[in-house]
Amino acid sequence: MTTLTKQPGPGLSASSGPRKSRKRGKPSAGFRGIGDLKIALLFIAPAMLGFLLFYLVPTVRGIYLSFTEYSILGDPEWIGTRNYERIAKDPLFWNALGVTSEYVVINIVLQTALALGLAILMHRVAKSTLIRGALLLPYLMANVIAALLWFWMLDYQIGIINQLIEWTGLPRVAFFGSEQWAIPTQALINTWRHMGYTALLIFAGLQAIPNSVYEAASIDGSKAVSTFWRITLPLLRPVLVLVLVVTVIGSFQVFDTVAVTTAGGPVNATRVLQYYIYQRAFNEQDFGYGSALAVILFLILALVAFIQMKFLRGNQSDLD
C-alpha cells in the first residue's frame, strides 16, 4: 500500500498492476527495498524486542552464570567450567536425564499415537464442531489445575480411582507414591492434557491432503488400512515432524506437574531435569549450577530437534 505513494505518476489505480510490476525491476527498486525493510523492521520490532529482552538476554546471562558461582544475593563469582565438571560427576543429573527420557518416551509415543487416531476420527467420523471442540477441553485447563485434579483423583487413600480399583477387587495403586508408577502416571496425565491439541494440529495437516489422491487410491482398489500407511502417513510427514519437534521439546521441559505433585520424589523417581534445575537454583540458591544444567538441557533439545528435522526431512513435502 504505502509503496504506492512513492510511485511516480500519482492517481494510478489498481488497474496499473502490470506497470507496477514492470517498475519493480527498475533502478528505483533499491530505494523501495529499503522502504520495505524499514516497514518490515517496524512490524518485527515488538516481537524482536520481546525476544531480545525475555529470551536472548536471559539466555546469554544464563550461559554466563553457568560459569559462575552465584546465590542470587551477592555477586556472581567466575569459576570457569567447574559447574560442568561437577555435573558430569553428579549422579542426580544422570538420574534426571534417565527419568526425563522415560517421561518423554511414554508421553510422546502415546500422545502422538492417540492424537493421530483422534485426528483421523475427526477427519472421517466426528464432523461435529462440538465434539471436535470438546477434544480441546483438557488443553484449556491450566497445567497445575489438571495436575492437582488428577493428583486428588488418583490419591492412594481418598482418590475416586483407587476406590473404583478396590471395588473391582484389585489392590490399591500408589500412582504418585511408588517409584515405578510416578513417572508413567505423570506422563499419562500430560498425554491426556495435550492429545486434543496435538490432534488438532494433525487434523489441520490431514485437511491439507487433497481429496484427489484418495480418489485415485480408491479407484486403484486400495483398502482403508493400506491407504493410511501408503498415502495418509507419508503425506502427513511434514506436519507430524513439526508436531513431534514441538511436543518433544515441550515434553523434555516437564516441570509444573512434578512441582505440584511429587516434587522429585519418592527418592529420585520424578526428579526430572527441569525440576532438578529449579531445585538447585531456587531452593538451594545455587544459580550457577542451575544455569549450567539449563544450558545442558538447551543443548540436548537443540540436538534432538536437529536430528528430528534432519532425519525426518521435516522441511520437505511429498505432495506435488
Partner: peptide
C-alpha cells in the same frame, strides 16, 4: 503406613 501411600496425603 508405607511411604508411597503418604504422597499427597
Amino acid at each position: 503406613p508405607k511411604l508411597e501411600t503418604t504422597v499427597g496425603a
